[in-house]
Simulated assay, not measured.
Amino acid sequence: MRDDGLDRAIDAAGGIAQLARKIGISQPSVSNWTRVPAQRVVAVETATGVSRNDLRPDLYGEQAGSAELVDPIDAARAREYALLAVLLSAPPSKRLLDQLAALSGDATPLGRAHAALADAAASAVAAKVEREYFDLFVGLGRGELLPYASYYLTGFLNERPLSRLRGDLTTLGIEPVANNSEPEDHAAILCEIMSGLVAGRFDASPEVQRAFFEKHVSPWMGRLFADIESAGDAGFYRVVGALGRTFIEIETEAFTFAS
C-alpha cells in the first residue's frame, strides 16, 4: 500500500507513468514503490512540487525542526549535490528551468557558474533540453556519455568500482532503490548520496564523508563534468558540466585541506 506522500506525488504528476518519465526511471520501478526512496526524494520534489517533508517525513520532518544544527556551509553543499543529482538523473522540467533562472551569482567561481546556469535556464526550451539529455546520456543504444564510475575508471560497466561502492553502501546502511534500473555508481545517485551524507540524513562523520568522496567521487566525476562541458551535443548541459566541474574542484580542495 502506497503512503500518502507518494500518492500526492503521483496525483501531482498526473499518474505513475508521468511521474516515472519526469524523474527519468521506468514505470514499473515507480509502480513497485510503497514510498518515495530516499535517493529519489529531491527529484520527485522537483518534478511534482510536493515538498520533501510531505514525501518522507521520517527523513525530513525532524531535520526541518533542527535545521539550525546543520552548518550553513554544509547545507549549501548538500543543496549543490542535490541540484547536480536532479540534473543528471533526468532532463529538467519547465518548472525546474524557471527555478534555475532565478538563481543569483557572485564573483566566486561557483557564483559565476550559478549565474551562467541561470542565464542558460532562462533561454532554454524544455523540449529541446529533454532531447539534449537523451542524446547525451541515453541515445539509441547508448548516449554520447556514460555517467558511471565503473566506465570512467575501467572502461567497462558494472566492474569492481561498483562492487566496492555496494560494499561501502551496505556498511553505511544505505539501501539501493528497489527495482531501480540504474546501478548505484551512476553520477546522479552518487551525488544524491553525497547530499544525504553532508546534510546528515545518513549517519556519517566528516571523516566518512571524506573517505566516501575520495574513493567513489573524486577519482572520476570531475572528468565526467569536463566531458559534459565539451560534449558535441551539449547546449544547456554545457553549463551544467561547468558547474559540476567547478563544484567538484572546490570539494576536492576542501577535503584535502581538511585531511
Rank of each mutant, 00 (worst) to 15 (best):
G14D: 09
L59I: 10
L83I: 07
A20H: 00
R77L: 10
D227G: 04
I16V: 15
L88M: 15
A187Q: 02
L55M: 09
R201M: 08
A17L: 06
V177M: 14
E184A: 13
L146R: 12
P28W: 02
S89V: 01
L153E: 15
E251P: 00
S29M: 14
H216S: 08
G141C: 02
L146H: 01
C191S: 10
K94M: 13
I250R: 12
P147L: 12
I193G: 05
P28F: 04
F255L: 13
S259N: 12
E184N: 08
P161H: 08
Q27S: 08
S66Q: 07
L103K: 11
Y148G: 02
L136Y: 08
G24E: 03
P183L: 09
H114C: 12
S51M: 04
S93H: 09
K128T: 03
L169R: 05
S26G: 14
D185Y: 05
V129I: 05
A47G: 09
T48C: 07
S104A: 14
R52P: 02
L145A: 03
L197Q: 07
R8Y: 01
K128G: 04
R2Y: 01
A17K: 10
V50S: 01
R35K: 12
S93C: 09
R2K: 12
A122F: 02
T108F: 03
S150D: 01
F236Y: 14
I23R: 00
D227V: 09
F156N: 11
E251H: 04
R52N: 02
G141S: 08
N179P: 00
P109K: 08
F137C: 06
S259K: 13
